[in-house]
Design a protein around this nucleic acid. Structure first.
Lengths: 133, 133
DNA sequence: GAAGAAACCGATTGACGATCGGTTTTTCAA
DNA sequence: TTGAAAAACCGATCGTCAATCGGTTTCTTC
């Protein structure tokens, strides 16, 4: 868990991933049909973006008859977590404090409600922690 | 503040930045002298990494006689904040919840002490918020 | 077995980081 | 004042990678 390295994602990759998250498992053709409204690209282009995402371990796929059905291997939440973790690791090494600081700095932008939610989430997390030991 | 886009940083760029953070303002030659132990690269290579960092707004520089003196334009903490913000924005759009969730997920890996620190930091933030209205 | 669909196989283009050599400019000391 | 040293500046190469696509092969199904 010391090296969470997640490869960076390109714009199309993210768009395609968003599509899968939103509409669930799909094959290249279906994704293309939906995505081509905003980007006029060939089916092949979508296909290779899906392929790349698969190689990166972010999408899973299963052959349905002779077409691949791609599905999200990680939730958005999980991906965000990994990306953030990876980012922090890169520039802050092992200093876990950097993570907390960044967190708080970001929380500055949060209003009271957000802070409240946050406290609740932490409290819950803490409860889980206590429980499991 | 809707577009926090921070350009991604390469490995050498980070190494050089770390060096500046650690040792303070320096010129290319000095950085090179320190960095070349771990990486045997030419002075020019370090120079262009510094230059890139400067163009990205991450380093500042001032001409001391005829040499540039580079100094950190942002603290590590600030940079981490920006990078994380940028990362989250990219894959989570405006969903501020994604950010909070991600952090809480990350906090799971923190032990009790970390969680406690986190609570303190949030409490302080909250106090500041209340104060200012 | 033929037609259509999808995978597969490159190939190209454009960014960009890392790397360096050579040229020009600047400084400073003899 | 001039010449050597130092540093900037210029630009070129290499490797990687995302985005893009056309053409070929393989597979399925009627």
């Amino acid at each position: 868990m010391t090296n969470p390295s997640v490869p960076p994602l390109g714009d199309l990759e993210i768009a395609v991933l968003e599509d899968i998250w939103r509409f669930g498992s799909s094959d290249a053709k279906t994704v293309h049909a939906r995505v081509k409204h905003s980007r006029s690209i060939a089916l092949n282009t979508v296909q290779s973006a899906l392929e790349r995402l698969f190689r990166k371990g972010i999408l899973q796929r299963e052959k349905i008859s002779h077409a691949y059905e791609y599905s999200a291997g990680v939730s958005r939440r999980e991906l965000v977590r990994k990306l953030v973790e990876s980012t922090v690791h890169r520039v802050a090494g092992t200093q876990s404090d950097a993570l907390l600081s960044a967190f708080v700095d970001l929380a500055v932008q949060a209003d009271g409600d957000q802070l409240k939610r946050l406290e609740e989430l932490i409290a819950r997390r803490r409860a889980e922690l206590d429980e499991s030991r």
